[in-house]
Design a protein around this nucleic acid. Structure first.
Lengths: 155, 155
DNA sequence: AAATACAGGACCAATATGGTTCTGTATAGA
DNA sequence: TCTATACAGAACCATATTGGTCCTGTATTT
């Protein structure tokens, strides 16, 4: 629990793919095939990421999606925020201060805020650039980046 | 998003109440009244916390719930784990290693694991004891701890 | 024995999520 | 200019999860 939605999960995977070749455009079809995420989901997510300014899109025959910023300038927090909205452990935290009538006497709100900020900071510390590198404990693979299908776990 | 369930949210609040007077027993009715969480929810959550070993229960007329461990020995991670199951950003992370067939070539699994561990560590860093103290930014109140009703924000 | 209080379920309505589909518009190239 | 490609936007649906209730049973105190 404390789960990410699949949209956010997929989104992280998709952007990690795109970030491997920044500046290059990728079609939804291609990204779906590579990731093995269902195509309709992929198109939906790519549209959301475009609207949020993380991707740029080009229509037409040679169209596709490409990164709108450098991979160093996109964090996991950005991606999750784009696909699930503000990072907030509870509705109380998401709301504007003063939004909840019990707020002034709520004994845990402050602590939740502290936790929430720490989690957000963690998510802001991971960039797309870092996600193109192998993580600690990752299996070491020889990948032909031009042709390989790198399936993403979607369990 | 990245929301806690209300059960976990409530659970944190309820335990924060109980931890103010460790060693003392509190009935479900009393905790519901103090927190203004709906009674049926409160009873359900207290049962779960008892089964998980965070609370001890006594039946009968003088019954109620009390902390099973010292407030220093209970973390936010423990509470969330008890009420929502293992802390895992994705199903992939929750499963046993080797559980997902795409795992060996999944390029983001390692990074998710790193993120997940960091978040869990954050949640493990906050104890019930610390939650009985005011948090940074909390309003300073004069509370008569014997009689006051300290409503918890449940928005 | 009676009243209190927890234990353990089953149960239900509402919401959110995952996923699909359809119509429309822009672009490249024949 | 016509056609195929590919994104834009939105409506839509089935299902799972969540929040919440309720009922029956057991233990304990007085």
């Amino acid at each position: 629990m404390l789960r990410l939605t699949k949209q956010a999960d997929y989104g992280l995977g998709l952007l990690a793919f795109v970030a491997r070749k920044p500046g290059q455009t990728h079609t939804a079809r291609e990204l779906s095939a590579r990731s093995s995420y269902p195509l309709p989901m992929v198109t939906k997510i790519l549209k959301l990421l475009t609207r949020s300014g993380l991707l740029e899109s080009r229509r037409g025959v040679k169209g596709g999606y490409s990164l709108a910023r450098s991979p160093e300038a996109v964090t996991a927090a950005d991606i999750i925020h784009a696909l699930e909205g503000p990072i907030a452990l509870t509705g109380c935290i998401a709301g504007e201060p003063g939004d909840c009538d019990k707020e002034p006497i709520c004994p845990i709100q402050g602590h939740l805020r502290v936790l929430n900020d720490a989690i957000r900071a963690t998510l802001q510390g991971v960039t797309l650039a870092s996600m193109t590198l192998p993580a600690v404990g990752d299996p070491v693979l020889q990948i032909d980046s031009a042709t390989s299908t790198q399936s993403v776990c979607n369990k």
